[in-house]
Amino acid sequence: MIELVSAERCINCDLCVRVCPTNVFDAVPGDNPVIARQQDCQTCFMCEAYCPVDALYVAPFAEQHIAVDEQALNEDALLGSYRRAICWSPGSRPQPDQSFRLLRGG
């Protein structure tokens, strides 16, 4: 579930508030959005995909809240890693979907 809105990176664009399908965030005038309803997060990673500055981190645990360390996430290059994987980061090289080579008859 969502664990981090990075104060260092966030630009208050509130895009995560708009796009979250389960309405987890609340906008705060003049400040970073807050995780207002963490228990409603469905761990779908869509907010990360849409965040233009890689300020969000969705931990992989669907039912369990964990503490995260922003510095460690930075060092492990995990902030923005989903956006890079789907080639939505600026300048990322399109990686063609190779499903057809794998899932024959699937």
Binding site: S81, Y82, P96, S99, L103
Partner: peptide
């Protein structure tokens, strides 16, 4: 080996939870 090579492009989100732990 080929499966392993192509799998990430086919379903990037399959690997997210594994990469993160």
């Amino acid at each position: 080996d080929a499966d392993r090579q192509y799998a990430r492009s086919a379903q990037p989100n399959f690997f997210l939870p594994f990469d993160r732990i």
